[in-house]
């Protein structure tokens, strides 16, 4: 708060001092006319007119000095101290608020970075999982294909072996039949007869 005694106040004070310095003349004249208010005894001190001039005189001097000391030295200084403290506190509060805002921004940035990194990590893990699944699937498919081919080959081999074995068995059967008939009847049946008979038996069989 700026403390500046206005021109008018100073004028008022000057007027006061002037009136005070002239007042004793009037007052002392009145005092001379009425020496004391209560007659023969000494006047009641606060109403003793003879002391008025001196009191006003010294009041003007002391109060003037006080006004001068306060308005030029004390009050501007105390006002400056209070202003300085107010600005210091305001500045410190501002600084603190800025620091806090900065800290909050940093924390926010850290949080976003963290979530992003977490998302990235999940993506990478997913991609790795996908590729590995795909690779293993492909390998399984090829292995399965190879196995199926081998199985089919094996089955074909078995079938061929079986048919050849079966023809061998028929040939052997008809020869055995010829031999048995020859031994039993002495007659040798023709190969065709024997093989037909074997076929009949096999067909029944």
């Amino acid at each position: 708060m700026p403390v500046r005694s206005s021109r008018f106040v100073r004028q008022g004070l000057a007027g006061f001092v002037a009136s005070v310095l002239t007042a004793p003349l009037v007052v002392s004249a009145a005092g001379a006319a009425t020496p004391s208010l209560s007659g023969e005894k000494a006047a009641f001190p606060p109403f003793d007119v003879t002391t008025f001039a001196g009191q006003l005189f010294w009041l003007a001097i002391t109060f003037g000095a006080l006004y001068w000391l306060m308005s030029t030295i004390a009050l501007p200084r105390v006002g400056a101290i209070l202003d300085e403290r107010a600005t210091t506190i305001a500045r410190d509060l501002d600084n603190a608020a800025q620091m806090q805002a900065k800290a909050e921004a940093t924390a926010l940035a850290y949080e976003t970075a963290l979530t992003e990194a977490r998302k990235n990590a999940q993506g990478i893990a997913q991609a790795a999982r996908d590729t590995s699944t795909k690779a293993s699937d492909a390998r399984r498919h090829t292995v399965e294909g190879e196995l199926a081919a081998k199985l089919a080959q094996a089955e074909a081999t078995i079938a061929a072996t079986k048919t050849s074995a079966m023809t061998n068995v028929r040939g052997l059967g008809s020869e055995v039949a010829v031999a048995i008939v020859t031994k039993l009847t002495g007659q040798t049946p023709s190969a065709t007869e024997a093989s037909e008979a074997v076929d009949q038996v096999l067909a029944r069989g």
Partner: peptide, 22 residues
């Protein structure tokens, strides 16, 4: 000038007051 402007006990305490405030 025949005025009683003596420095009295009242004046002394006015000065005291200004001193204390200062």
């Amino acid at each position: 000038f025949g005025l009683d402007l003596s420095f009295s006990n009242a004046s002394l305490f006015m000065v005291f007051a200004v001193g204390v405030i200062s």
